[in-house]
Design a protein around this nucleic acid. Sequence first.
DNA 1: ATATTGAAAATTGGATACAATCTTAGATAT
DNA 2: ATATCTAAGATTGTATCCAATTTTCAATAT
Lengths: 221, 221
Amino acid sequence: MKAPIRELADLAPLNLPRGRVAALVQDLRAEIVTGTIAPGATLVQEDLAARFGVSRMPVREAIKHLQMLGFVTVEDNKRARVAELSRDDFVEIYDMREGAEALAIRSAIPHLTNAHIEAAAAIQDRIEGVDPKGFGALNMAFHMTLYRPSGRMRLLTHVEMLFNAADRYVSMVSAGPELKAKANAEHRSLLEHCLARDTAAAEACVRKHISDARDALAQFF
Amino acid sequence: MKAPIRELADLAPLNLPRGRVAALVQDLRAEIVTGTIAPGATLVQEDLAARFGVSRMPVREAIKHLQMLGFVTVEDNKRARVAELSRDDFVEIYDMREGAEALAIRSAIPHLTNAHIEAAAAIQDRIEGVDPKGFGALNMAFHMTLYRPSGRMRLLTHVEMLFNAADRYVSMVSAGPELKAKANAEHRSLLEHCLARDTAAAEACVRKHISDARDALAQFF
DNA sequence: ATATTGAAAATTGGATACAATCTTAGATAT
DNA sequence: ATATCTAAGATTGTATCCAATTTTCAATAT
């Protein structure tokens, strides 16, 4: 009696993965990151509800969620606005990333197995492949694969939030081939330090990886 | 025509400061921090709504907010639970505080005026006064007064969140007089470093202040 | 022309009602 | 006695409706 008699019924309201709020957050996040919804644009609950075919209630919760993630700003009784971008904000995100990810790799290395490192290496292989599409997601997956074994949920959630915040900026510039090559080399050497379980070297590598990226990209804003 | 004809009407629904959600978050946060609502306890939306005299809708948003702040854990369609406490969680919070607050003081010092430092010193005077009540809030105010001039909103919000998370643990132990004296001395020397605009010394001071507190308190959990 | 005011429209905040899901207690079988 | 199943109850998720606030825009005054 494991499978109920619902087959056709499942087709219509599909891919609403247990809670439409999560789906809304993902969709809106993507539109904000790609600039489909411009910085400063207002988000009207009823419009979004109509567009996504739900009521205002899930939209409200999704907007609240996006607010906590820093994607939109909300004042009481006023319409939510997509958060503005600025050079200072970009630098702030990367400065925070440096500290948080240094702590993440430091906490993770004692728990890293070779399987973890190989998984990260496999992701790096894909990053160096031809497909430049979805670089942001792959890059985040590479880093998170190495951080996740730390088991520190607060820290991991925070790092993930910073990655998402950074995406808004990173996706705006098409990184030149020399920058990409540098980043790839740094990923490879980070993998080496992890294999050697050299905590200090790995942490320094992560710090430099991030602060160099900050300095290289900051000029674009 | 500035004042409508509502006088008695204003007395009943008073002190709901523009949005009852904020008030709910504060009240629930306080009850969780003080342990009035124990770790692991379930939060039933309708019960809370009845208790605070509102509908479930503001309660839902408050719970969602508390979730983001790490005070409660929520699974879809299940009742929210007050987050459990653990030694690992405590250490995690303090490790994150060390990195975040080091960055905060470093970013703030170039913008610090003597007025800022004097305001912090005034708060420290109160901390060293007789009244041990409200230490958590005063301590946070002292630190935030020094960090706020950095103007980095993301970072300040994050630091404040970590302070609130730490409160659940700190408020459980009654710090001995020697620990208090040590913390006060560290606050005073931090003020000195700020007056001298010695960024490196101030950052090192903050780091030690936090990591020492971590090591001193961790044993209690 | 520009600024100010006021009222209508738009929009958000909150309450109530219903649907979907989870939880619990009791019945049944082993 | 213990475990399993089932159905009723409890609880959360979503929709719809009303109230409170903000926004807009035209009318008026300067």
